[in-house]
Structure formats: C-alpha cells, structure tokens
Nucleic acid binder design. Sequence first.
DNA 1: TTCCCGAATGTAATCGATTACATCGTTGCG
DNA 2: CGCAACGATGTAATCGATTACATTCGGGAA
Lengths: 347, 347
Amino acid sequence: MVLTRKTPTIQDVALRAQVSSATVSRVLSAPERVSEKTRERVNAAVRDTGYSINQAARSLRMKTARTLLMVAPNIGNPFYSVILDAVIDEAQKRGYGVLVGTNIGLDPGRWLTDYLLSTRADGLLLFHGGLDPEDLHTFAREEGISLPVVASYDEPPAPLVTSVVTDNRAAAARAVRYLMQLGHTKIGHLAGPVRNNRPNERLLGFEEAMTAANLPLNPAWILPGNYDQPGGIAAARAILALTERPTAMFCGNDESAFGFIHGLREGGVECPRDISVIGFDDVGQAEIYHPTLTTMRQPREDLGRVATRRLIDIIEKRETPTDPVHVVLPAELIIRESTRALDSSGR
Amino acid sequence: MVLTRKTPTIQDVALRAQVSSATVSRVLSAPERVSEKTRERVNAAVRDTGYSINQAARSLRMKTARTLLMVAPNIGNPFYSVILDAVIDEAQKRGYGVLVGTNIGLDPGRWLTDYLLSTRADGLLLFHGGLDPEDLHTFAREEGISLPVVASYDEPPAPLVTSVVTDNRAAAARAVRYLMQLGHTKIGHLAGPVRNNRPNERLLGFEEAMTAANLPLNPAWILPGNYDQPGGIAAARAILALTERPTAMFCGNDESAFGFIHGLREGGVECPRDISVIGFDDVGQAEIYHPTLTTMRQPREDLGRVATRRLIDIIEKRETPTDPVHVVLPAELIIRESTRALDSSGR
DNA sequence: TTCCCGAATGTAATCGATTACATCGTTGCG
DNA sequence: CGCAACGATGTAATCGATTACATTCGGGAA
C-alpha cells in the first residue's frame, strides 16, 4: 500500500474522541469496559476518521497474526479447491485470513520458519503437501514450539496431531462391497500414492473387503496411481494389456477414475458396459461426466469447515492439545452410471 | 504460535555475534554494506540461534506486508485454482505470501479496509469477485490511497487499472469461425454472466464473428449462463425445447459446456453427432471428458504468473502506474471430439 | 465527615526490526 | 603532519496497538 495521505492511527481516533489511545483500544476489543457515553464518542470518531486497525502493530504486540496457513499438494485439483473455499469462508467468520502454500517440497524446518515462526500465521491446516505431521511434531518439539496444526489426510492420522478425516478405510470397503453386490468378483484397484511411508487407507479398505469376501487379490489388477488423470490413463493401458481383465475397478479418487475410464475408451473398452468403475471424492465433474460416476462422496466442505474451526479453537484457547482429537466424518455411496450389475452369467 | 521458549530476536543474534542489531539488520538486507568478517560472524550467529525474522515487526516498521491478496469469485472452479497455483508459486519466488479471499459481496470499502489498509496485504490480484476495478479505483482515489491492483477479467479491462487478460473477444470470434469452417451456420451461444455492467467480451466476439459472416443472430439460441454446470444443463433444456435447434454451440467456458453436453445427453441429443460444442478455457477435464472438448485454451498459468509479477513490480517500484499497462495474452484453439464437420447436405 | 472501593480512564512501557544520524578509525593527499 | 573523506559500526528514535499499573472520581459505609 502506498498512501498519499497517512492512514489514521489509533492516536488520531483518540484525539478526535478526546480520550486516550488506551480507551480507544478498549472500545475496540472490550467494549464493556468503557462507559456507554465514551464508547459512543469513540465509535463515532472511528467512523469519522475511517480508522482501520494496523494488523502489523497488533500482531507485533500480541504475537498473533489472525491468519491461518493452509497447505495442500496442489490447489489445482478441484478436490482441494472446494475445501479451500470452505476454509476461507469459515476463517473469515472468525476474523482470520487464509494464506495458502503449496507443495513446497523443502525441508519442513525452513518452511515453518518462514511462515509460522515469523508471525505470519498462527496455525497450520495440513492437507498433505509433503509434510509429515509426525515430522512436524518432532521438529516443533525440538524447537520448543507448540504448533497448532490440524491435519486432514487419507492416511491413518498421526496420533499426535489433531485431525479431521473421512473414514477412508471404511468408505473404501463400502465401495468394494457395492461392486460385489452388483455381482462383481474380479475387482481391481487403482491405488493412491503412498505418502509419508504410511499405508494408503483406501488400499487397505479394498484389501479388507476383498479378503472378507474370500475374493482373491490379483496383483496385476492392483495398480499404482497418483490420484491424477495421467495415472488413470496409464492404469487403463495396463489393464488393456492383460488377457484376463477385472470386471470392476475401484479407483482411489475421481480424477484418476476419469482418466481410467478415458483410457479404457481409447482402447475400445467401455465403462460400464465392459468394466464398472467406482471413484472416491465426488467432485463436481462426477455428476456430469459420461458416464456419470459412481463414487464415495467425501464431505469436503465439512472437512474444510471442521478443520478450520478446530484449528482456531486450538489457537485461541492457547492450549497445547496434549490429547489431540481425531474427528472422523463418514463418506456416502453415490450410485450413478459408471457401475452396472453383472447378469447371472457373469457378463 | 504458542512458544514454550522465546523465539530469538535480532537482538539475540546481535549479542551472540557481538555486534549491534543494526549491523545484523544490514547483513540481512544489504550484506554489501557490512565487512566480510562481520558478515560471516553474523551469519553464523543467525544459524546458531535459529533466528527467523519477525514479519509483524518488519511490516510495522516498513509499512509493507510482503503479502498479496488474491480475490476470485469461487476458488472451487478449477479455472481459478490453477491460476492460484501459479500465483502462489510466483509470489513465493519473490518472497511474498498469498492471502486468498473469495466473493465477499460486501462493499469494497470495508473489504479493502480489512485487508489492504490494515497492513495485511500490499496489493490486490483481482480475478472477478464482484469488485469492479473502476469502483476500486474511485474508492482509492477518494481515500487518497494509491492501491496496487492487477486485474484479470473477461470483460474489457478497466482503463485505469493494470490488467492481464486473454484476448477474449478475438478468441471467441476464432472459436465461432472454427464452427463455421466446419460448415455450421446455425450457431448458438451460451453466454457468461454480465458483470460490473460491462458487456461480456466473449458474447461480443460471438456476435462479431456471426455478423462478419452474415449469419443471423437467433435470440432463442443465445442463452444466459453463469459459467457453471447447472447453467449449462438449463441451457441444454432450453435448446431441447426448441423446434429449430442450432447445429453448433459456443459455450462461454468449459464448465458450462460440460453441463450443456450433459443436459443434451439427458434429452437424447448427442454431442457432436447432433450438436457440436466448443468451450473456452481448456480446463484439465476437457481432455478426458466424453466427448473430449474442443475449446479455446487460455494460458491460465501465464495469466497467474504475469499478473503476479506485474503486481509485485508495481508494489516494489512504489510507483503509481499513472499509465497502466494492459497485457493481452493470446488463446489457442484446441480441436478435439466435441465438434464435427457438417457434410454437404448440412447434417 | 472521612475513608475505602471500584469503575473509568490515563500514562507509559513494550513488542522487534529498520534506519537516520552520530561516531570512530583509516587512508590518502597536500 | 594535519585534515578531509569514507567505510564500518553503533545509538536511539520510530512504526502503532496493547496493557500493566497509576490516577481520578464518585458513592456508600462507618
């Protein structure tokens, strides 16, 4: 901001209202501590001067930035962008701004340093982003910092860090069971990435459901993916190259499911005619893709809102959550066109 | 941030390096002004103490936040999220953070106040968001503020505000001409919203191309939209209800094109068999939708990067761009499956 | 009437980095 | 040898809001 005239400060307001700056400050943060008459005078002065608080000064004094930092691997993915929307909205309601960082890939130390230790942000909303919450925790501990973090992952949550997650394993199992209900037994899985050396929960859910139903896990049908479209296309090619193909595929997320279906189609194999596909997330596109996508809906907006609320609570209570909370939100099966029942002959 | 031990300040570093805090500050911001020997000593002390600058103090003193504010109507739209990604990356390179605001819908005054005048952000990246850059300019002028803003719109840019835009009108005309090349003459348009009382450039481009080719503008084929899927679906229904339908449709953006194609399909009308559709943006989905979408590719990443660079330049040069720059980036026609040529009989 | 108490308000220190200005020591030149 | 000039560094004021502590004032109780 380049100002051609100076912004009014709290002193200017005080002068105009004929009180001290302390009183103005009180009117603004603890109105009940000031007599009604003065309060009105001050409020009028605030209006007249067009005063707006200087956040930098406030932050310096209070050691608080009223700002959250959200980190996601790739905001470009519609999955995260809806969450971001919710985060911003919720934060705004509580008077916080939202800084966004992406996939920094640098060491967490420098990173945290830049944002958190420098009074730029008061807490961290972690939606992946190559930061292992456990590492973070360790780092913070070594530095003698108690760092407000809320994580939202699809791996099992780090026990030491407050988290808000979907029940990925259960939801994955539900998806797979739905395919079974449709008569499928030859079921494959396009997996998500393995992050932070933790098992992928959706893969676990898949394995769990298959095993529980006494169905074989065919390694050729379990493909590595990265939750993106190209991965889906590559997986489709891999499947097309097989002589024996699955009749149904559980894809780790919608993006990769779209890629997969597209890849199949390029090879002349149609979904759901030849292969049923179920996704995960229920992004906006799922409803209008062709075929419309059967998927497990994640309550993305809720994820964002709940995570934000929790983070602000942690920040404002100024309590180290020695016993972190793990909120688990349910996912919902959304049935659409991309899955079909096999008839009695198994076709 | 809750600290269990205090963060090292510049004083601590000074103490350890046996110099004054002024010298430490110099080493950090103007190393050449300090002798090599002292410089090394200070750098070592910085490392030893794990010092990281207190942004709030710096901001207070320098009246600068090293932060940009990006405003977009709806980050959930993949169009904006890719831009955001680029903005964040570019800003980070220059040492800036990115605050994100959405569709506030409040009056620009209060809004600006909260962010810009309060030393929270140094400049504004405006990707719509219900703020008219002209209003902003006026507001700022009245307040005696010179406000660094870069806008990226699909309306004609406000002459007073620096902007980085795609050449929407030319690109729209190009899209329409392509449809004509394929033999289409009955061409409709699913328009974008009218914002800030300015004509929609893509609509203008459409009209321009039609008129130039002496083709009639059928009002029943020019439908209002909002750049979103539901609008596309609604438009499809409207078209389906007509006895005489266009053979090709130019949709204002990809999102609405997807909705439109989907809506057609629900009514048993296939794209491109019955109606060709061309979109605008080239979002990630365009490449794997079924049919894959012919569209005008906007250089979204470039938009984000260029806008960010320009904004930072404005901020750092501390110059009021009395003669604002308007960067225009070209769009590119991407031909895919959703458009087909009519044969000689016009089918 | 005097004294105490509490509500309302003021005074001034404080947060941490930047920077104008002052100081000190060298070097170079007349 | 003396002094100017310059480079390196230190001193201290400053940015604007918060808040611990001090002050003032009025009312009620003894």
